[in-house]
C-alpha cells in the first residue's frame, strides 16, 4: 500500500464579476435589473398622484415635466426594460405553472401564448380608455 496522503481540498472563490463571463449569466443579470425601471416608474406614478392631490396647478407642472428630454429618455428606456421583463416573465410561466388537462400536459407554448393574449387585451383596453 502507498502512504496515506494529506487531504487539502482547494476552494475556488467565486469572482464578483461572475455574471459578466457567460452570456446566460449576463442575460440573467439584465433580466434582474429590469426591476430598477419597474420600481422607478412606480415612484413616478406616486409623484404624479401626489401632485394631483395638490391641485390643478401642481398637477399641470408634473404633466409638463413629463415632456422634458430627460423624462422622455427615461420612459423610453423604462419601456424597453418593462417589455424585456414581460417577455422573460411570460417565457418562464410554463415552468412555474405547468398545466395538465386530464391525462395530457398542455404544451408550454400554449401557456405562454395565453399570457400574451391576455397582455394584448389588457394593453389594448388601456390604450382605448386613454384615447376615449
Amino acid at each position: 500500500m502507498g502512504e496515506v496522503m494529506d487531504r487539502r481540498p482547494y476552494v475556488r472563490e467565486m469572482p464578483k464579476s461572475w455574471w459578466l463571463g457567460q452570456r446566460r449569466y449576463t442575460f440573467y443579470m439584465v433580466r434582474e435589473l429590469t426591476c430598477l425601471f419597474i420600481g422607478a416608474y412606480a415612484l413616478v406614478i406616486l409623484v404624479g398622484l401626489f401632485r394631483l392631490s395638490q391641485g390643478p396647478v401642481a398637477y399641470g407642472a408634473f404633466v409638463d415635466a413629463l415632456q422634458g428630454p430627460f423624462a422622455i429618455a427615461f420612459h423610453l428606456l423604462a419601456l424597453v426594460f418593462a417589455l424585456f421583463h414581460t417577455v422573460t416573465w411570460f417565457g418562464l410561466t410554463p415552468k412555474a405553472m405547468p398545466l395538465r388537462l386530464g391525462e395530457k400536459t398542455v404544451p408550454g407554448t400554449a401557456i405562454i401564448v395565453a399570457h400574451y393574449a391576455v397582455w394584448f387585451v389588457v394593453s389594448a383596453t388601456l390604450l382605448l380608455v386613454a384615447r376615449a
Binding site: 446566460r24 449569466y25 440573467y28 418562464l92 410554463p94 415552468k95 412555474a96 405553472m97 405547468p98
Partner: peptide, 21 residues
C-alpha cells in the same frame, strides 16, 4: 430562477421548473 441548471442537464431534467413549482 437563473435557469442554468436546466440548460446544462445532460438528461433533460428541469430542476428550475421543479423549484418554482
Amino acid at each position: 430562477f437563473v435557469g442554468a441548471c436546466s440548460q446544462v442537464c445532460p438528461k433533460a431534467v428541469d430542476p428550475a421548473a421543479a423549484i418554482q413549482q
